[in-house]
Write a protein that binds this DNA or RNA. Structure first.
Lengths: 192, 192
DNA sequence: GTCTATATCGTGATAGAC
DNA sequence: GTCTATCACGATATAGAC
């Protein structure tokens, strides 16, 4: 590490590429996009772009990681619950259809253990479930959620619903994703 | 139609191909399968297989349609509720990972309105929601489900959860899909 | 660090023999 | 109806100039 500045500059350029790519995909969409298409849109040649990433899979993985990072900065504001922040992200997704499609596609492909991004997604899902589970237990402690709710199952359900709703929304954009998740939250929080 | 028997025979062969393909994919898995791989597995040349289908997309769409048909015959038994039949299908899916991956992949790709199977999936989802909604309203009428449940939203949620759980299950096969859906059903049926 | 050029591959689809 | 053979294409990845 620290090869006299060149390293830091390379990192900065990588970030710049990822930010530009996010923007392009969000607007222009993702249709099984090739590296070349993305390179054109970002203003580099295909080889020039792959100079910064080991492979196509790593490139798209890093785009999705960057997206998570941006979303976290934008929607994880301190005075807002985890669930509210999450709903805000889902609502925002309506405006970036290309990212929704990219995410759905890659997350499915990464289901194959041989896929280069398999570990990345496994970890991402575990992290999400952990954080949501924490929020859920806190809500239980505050008495907002019944104690007999199975935190682990409900956590997986919420994430699954969010993912599955994206598929339905892509098929039919009139589907209201946040309304569905709000109804799920209502089911979770209503008292017996 | 009815070109003197050749037609009926062609249909039979088509069905035979689809049944064999289902079996092969269920066991050997689906990794972005090419027509050629499937043809080998089915015992035909690539050209021989495509003789029966207009394109790769139509082939995979028909494989999935056939699967729905087989599942319906196997699990839609008369003395069982819609929800129980659905849970049985989900439980069965654990034994056919290749079909789960095929379905997940194609359903996401079909989100693009330009995809040849877009209409097929739109219709499939609508049909499912209609049937599940009917079952839910009946349960409301019997007093098993609260009247203040939003049938349309909950219907979409259930389907979304089933789809999303498949993604999580592919990433981590220890995930218990039916248990998650049973918990969702419990959330839906518990009385306030 | 970025380019051009190219190697290498696998794909879906089709033509035409049998 | 099924085969062999082949086409045309677009992909990723890499070599090497600048």
């Amino acid at each position: 590490m620290a090869r006299r500045g060149a390293y830091a500059k390379g990192i900065a350029k990588r970030e710049e590429i990822l930010t530009a790519a996010l923007d392009v995909i969000a607007r222009n969409g993702y249709r099984g996009t090739s590296v070349r298409e993305l390179a054109d849109a970002v203003g580099l040649s295909q080889a020039g772009l792959l100079h910064y990433f080991a492979s196509k899979e790593e490139l798209f993985q890093e785009i999705l990681r960057k997206r998570d990072e941006v979303d976290a900065q934008t929607f994880d504001v301190a005075d807002r619950s985890f669930i509210d922040g999450f709903l805000a992200v889902i609502g925002h997704n309506t405006e970036v259809p290309g990212l929704v499609q990219l995410y759905a596609q890659v997350s499915v492909e990464a289901g194959d253990p041989a896929h280069p991004s398999h570990a990345f997604f496994v970890e991402r899902y575990e992290q999400f479930r952990a954080r949501f589970g924490e929020a859920l237990r806190e809500a239980q402690a505050r008495g907002e959620v019944d104690a007999d709710i199975d935190v682990k199952l409900v956590t997986g359900l919420f994430l699954a619903a969010a993912d599955g709703l994206q598929v339905q929304w892509m098929l039919d954009p009139t589907i209201d994703m946040p309304a569905h998740l709000a109804e799920l939250w209502r089911l979770i929080t209503r008292r017996t």
